[in-house]
């Protein structure tokens, strides 16, 4: 097995466990590169099918290219797509810094969807190498009442035995890409020829390295206009992947506070 085969195998194992053990399960599809890889892995795990609903928690502030992408591939990949519009920013915690407050809409939209659909499991495409608090995550990560993440008291997780039973009112976040790196994701996109939004490719010396809302996401300097060039760039860069995501950098603990409250 190649390193990419090993990553793929572990993700497939996780997705199959989730599908087998969790009754009311859905996958988050943010339209970014990681969540496209995740949908792709589900099709691998389930032999061309995605047996659970795919949900887009929509801030209505995504780039137009992302909405076009959603329309096209929801149909082409035969996804059971649910789109959920987030509540307005005025309803968010006013003590959060502005970009984090804007990002909190996504948490509120997601938490609303979880309650409404009575979901007991949500598959999310986060990775440990993205950000410090995500490095601390479990593959099957319980969320308690009010969707709170109790990072001080996480269940043990070893030998691929996951905690899949939960008291009523709680749900699981399932993280099939936790062990992947940004480079792994790009190498896999290349190997499998997975479609992605064009915004990742450089235009006029700039490209997006991570896609979020258009008002709080900024492009990085880059001339990488093909997947090979992106891979070459990432092999030498020392700029963090989420450096263009404003909400991560406003205050020391802004992102941690978002995640404890239920952000992906």
């Amino acid at each position: 097995m190649t390193p990419l085969d090993a990553l793929e195998s572990q993700s497939i194992y996780i997705l199959r466990e989730a599908h087998s053990r969790i009754d009311r399960l859905a996958m988050l599809w943010s339209l970014g590169k990681d969540s496209n890889v995740m949908v792709w892995l589900a099709r691998k795990a389930f032999f061309g099918h995605v047996p659970f609903p795919v949900m887009h928690v929509d801030t209505e502030k995504k780039f137009p290219e992302m909405y076009d992408f959603r329309t096209r591939y929801a149909e082409e990949w035969n996804l059971k797509l649910t789109v959920r519009t987030c509540p307005p920013v005025e309803e968010m915690d006013p003590t959060l810094p502005p970009a984090a407050r804007s990002a909190a809409r996504k948490t509120a939209g997601l938490n609303g969807l979880i309650a409404e659909q009575q979901l007991t499991g949500v598959i999310a495409g986060i990775r440990r190498d993205e950000e410090g608090t995500r490095a601390k995550e479990r593959v099957f990560s319980p969320r308690g009442e009010g969707n709170v993440w109790d990072f001080r008291n996480q269940p043990p997780e070893f030998w691929d035995q996951f905690r899949t039973d939960l008291p009523p009112g709680c749900h699981l976040r399932v993280h099939p890409l936790l062990h992947w790196s940004e480079l792994d994701v790009w190498r896999y996109i290349k190997r499998e020829n997975i479609p992605i939004v064009d915004l990742y490719y450089a235009r006029d010396g700039k490209r997006y390295r991570s896609l979020g809302d258009k008002d709080i996401t900024f492009p990085v300097d880059s001339n990488a206009s093909t997947i090979d060039e992106i891979i070459a760039e990432l092999e030498t860069t020392d700029v963090a992947e989420r450096s263009g995501r404003a909400m991560d950098h406003e205050a020391e603990d802004a992102f941690e506070r978002l995640r404890v409250g239920g952000y992906m």
Binding site: R128, E131, G132, K136, F151, E256
Partner: peptide, 16 residues
Amino acid sequence: ALRAERDQGITIDASH
């Protein structure tokens, strides 16, 4: 990375 850790000065969880 976590603020809670910085305050207590001990590592809470396995970080990768």
